[in-house]
């Protein structure tokens, strides 16, 4: 087995929260956005990360490339721990790891033309390139993502959401990165456009040997593109496995709930019975439940769940699950 291109170990991100009415001397509250997540990503593969809003998936992604500071842990990228790098070394790594974002229009500077937006990383990371070379590269890249190069002087607001996301992808691609982190890249788009963008990403991955981290809040999109899928709940990894395994045999009660809620386009299909989520409110990450963070909503919770945090069990073939009762929880459809 080859070494992973990126491996995260016990990454934790904590935010200081200051209520509006707080006095300067009142201590701030701690919000544990990501509490100890680990995973490996192989070159050319895709890791899907799913979870509800607020589960910490975007924060995790940003912490990987230090857009938000991680409190502790390791992010090893091609042999070096990103969290230890100096700002200038980190900037160099950023040309290899690019990110695209959820809201395609708002993520583009409205005061720059798309040509300028796509070109700018080249100016920063490849100052040696000549202007004509850069422009040629911008045109080529835009062309590749399906934006006509004669639109180069237009502003972002002149494009549709799907086009903006293509521009965002072109901007990420221009540096020929090795990894692209896609933070809910299609959530804001129409369903028909979603498929186009996901297919574009798959094509690019195949062509350029890209690795992808693909974040989404619904499993159906992730299923199409991911080799492995990680399920996050309240900053904790609850299950991680190969895509096929996860969808066929989800073991964590939370994963099962997520999968059962995916709509299926088959009128004869009968949804399997799953133990419903007990309580619909997501607990506060400022004051998370003791033990297993999912226990307040889990139909299988016992005293044990409130006392100790479940260990991450390896079921074999890289299928990891963090649940005290995974053995006794009925599997989906059985």
């Amino acid at each position: 087995m080859t070494d992973p291109i990126l491996s995260a170990r016990d990454v934790r991100v904590t935010f200081d929260i200051r209520p509006r009415s707080a006095m300067p001397w009142t201590p701030s509250q701690k919000l544990k956005a990501v509490s100890g997540v680990s995973f490996d990503l192989m070159a050319g593969q895709t890791l899907g990360i799913v979870g509800e809003s607020g589960c910490g998936k975007s924060t995790l992604a940003r912490a990987l490339i230090r857009l938000v500071p991680a409190e502790s842990g390791q992010v090893v990228w091609m042999g070096q721990n990103l969290l230890d790098l100096s700002t200038s070394d980190m900037r160099r790594v950023r040309s290899d790891i690019q990110m695209i974002f959820q809201d395609p229009l708002a993520s583009l500077n409205p005061r720059m033309t798309i040509g300028q937006i796509v070109e700018e990383p080249l100016i920063t990371h490849h100052p040696e390139m000549s202007k004509p070379d850069r422009v040629a590269r911008v045109r080529e890249t835009l062309d590749r993502v399906g934006i006509l190069p004669n639109m180069i002087n237009r502003y972002p607001h002149e494009f549709s959401g799907g086009q903006c996301q293509r521009i965002g992808i072109a901007r990420a691609l221009i540096l020929k990165p090795k990894l692209i982190i896609c933070d809910e890249p299609v959530s804001a788009l129409d369903v028909s456009i979603q498929a186009q963008v996901v297919n574009l990403l798959k094509e690019l991955q195949a062509e350029m040997g890209l690795s992808l981290i693909f974040i989404a809040h619904d499993l159906s999109i992730v299923k199409h593109i991911s080799d492995h899928v990680m399920v996050l709940y309240l900053g904790n990894m609850v299950e991680l496995s190969s895509s096929a395994d996860l969808y066929a045999t989800p073991r964590h009660p939370y994963t099962q709930t997520l999968i059962s809620s995916v709509p299926v386009a088959d009128p004869r299909y009968v949804k399997p019975e799953v133990d419903k989520i007990v309580n619909n409110d997501l607990p506060s990450p400022i004051n998370p439940p003791s033990g297993c963070v999912f226990r307040t909503r889990c139909a299988h919770a016992t005293d044990l769940c409130s006392q100790t945090k479940p260990p991450v069990d390896d079921l074999g073939q890289g299928h990891l699950v963090a649940c005290h009762h995974w053995k006794t929880v009925p599997s989906l459809g059985s």
Binding site: I65, L67, M90, R91, R92, V93, R94, S95, Q98, M99, F101, D103, A106, S107, L108, N109, P110, E120, P121, T124, H125, G168, R171
Partner: peptide
């Protein structure tokens, strides 16, 4: 705090 500044950071700009 806006998204396009986040994008700029992700680009790796100084």
């Amino acid at each position: 705090r806006s998204n396009f500044i986040r994008t700029a950071r992700a680009k790796g700009l100084p």
